[in-house]
Computed example of a mutant assay.
Amino acid sequence: MRTELASEPGDADRPNEDFASVGLPASGQGGSVVVLDGVTPPKTGTGCLHSVPWFTAHLGGALTELTVSLPDVPLVDALSRAIARTSEAHAATCDLSHPRTPQATVVVTRWNPDTVEYLVLSDSALLLESPDGVVTPVLDDRLALLPRSALATDALVDSTLRNREGGFFTAAADPSVARRAVTGTLPRSEVRALAALTDGATRWVERFEEGGWTDCFQLVRKEGPQALVDRVRTLERSDAAATFLGRSKRHDDATVVFAEI
């Protein structure tokens, strides 16, 4: 197995809210990848004493440990347990019912000699490459399919769409949200490599339209995760008129993990 990882904050003066890990079981049979994209909090607050990086570190650490130590537990249950463990760590001090309690998107995949499992929640992406080079994106597109008018303000999103039926879901304080994720299992023989990306990196495809998912995967495979992040940064700097980014932040945290399994 070969893995490469790059993660870069959107602003050097702010902590990176992404989390990424590669888990390798002591048996040496298989592995796992966990990538979280922490949701940047609003200026109005989150009802929580803790930062988003605190949350992603706790949730990501728990999820990494569970995917490795409990290989027979489905990824949905592993995520549910990780959310519950993280919630318990600050339930006594924070208002976990607040709609902007710290939260994150999730990509997790785990493989063994027989199967490759995956789970995607919200707008990060997982790319799976077959032995013949076909790249299949695994996406949770509920947020992308919402009309732009429904996303006009944070208050509107929080009151009508965030972690609500008919809207979109992120990993926050409710363990049951794990069952809203996009999940699946493939034979190990059908996957030779994979890449997990936060939406700061998927901008190369989804915002700047520099190529499709196959082009993106081949760039990561040939030049490495950092090359994709660097190209996104160049495109962001050149979009002075916000032609492609619109109301989105100029630079976003960007994380890419590549694994040849």
Rank of each mutant, 00 (worst) to 15 (best):
R192A: 04
A152L: 15
A195Y: 10
E4I: 02
G184Y: 12
H90F: 15
A104G: 10
E206I: 06
I261M: 14
S248I: 00
L121V: 00
P102M: 03
D252H: 06
D72W: 12
D230I: 02
A193L: 12
V120E: 01
L121S: 00
R2M: 13
F168Q: 06
R237F: 08
L228M: 05
A6R: 11
L96I: 10
D199E: 10
V76H: 09
G224Y: 02
P137Q: 09
T214Q: 13
A171D: 05
P147D: 06
L119D: 05
V108T: 12
W213N: 03
V229H: 01
K249Q: 14
A241F: 11
V135G: 08
T160N: 12
S122W: 00
R162C: 01
R192G: 14
E4S: 07
D215C: 15
T136W: 03
A104F: 12
S238D: 01
R110M: 09
G167T: 01
D239Q: 08
A254H: 07
A82F: 02
P42I: 06
G38A: 09
D239G: 07
V107T: 12
G10D: 02
V120A: 04
N112P: 10
V22L: 03
A62M: 04
A62R: 06
R207T: 06
D230W: 01
V107Q: 02
S124M: 10
P113N: 15
H98I: 09
L143V: 00
A82P: 00
A173Q: 10
E17F: 00
T40M: 00
A172P: 01
T105W: 00
L49W: 01
R14H: 11
R100Y: 14
S159C: 06
W204E: 03
L59W: 08
S69I: 04
E129R: 07
P9D: 05
S97Y: 07
G23N: 09
P53C: 11
L151T: 11
V73C: 13
T185A: 12
L59G: 00
F217E: 00
R207N: 10
T255M: 04
W54F: 11
S27G: 15
L128K: 13
T214P: 04
Y118R: 11
Q29A: 15
A92G: 11
L96Q: 11
V116K: 06
G45R: 07
V138P: 08
D158T: 09
A171V: 03
V205K: 06
K222D: 02
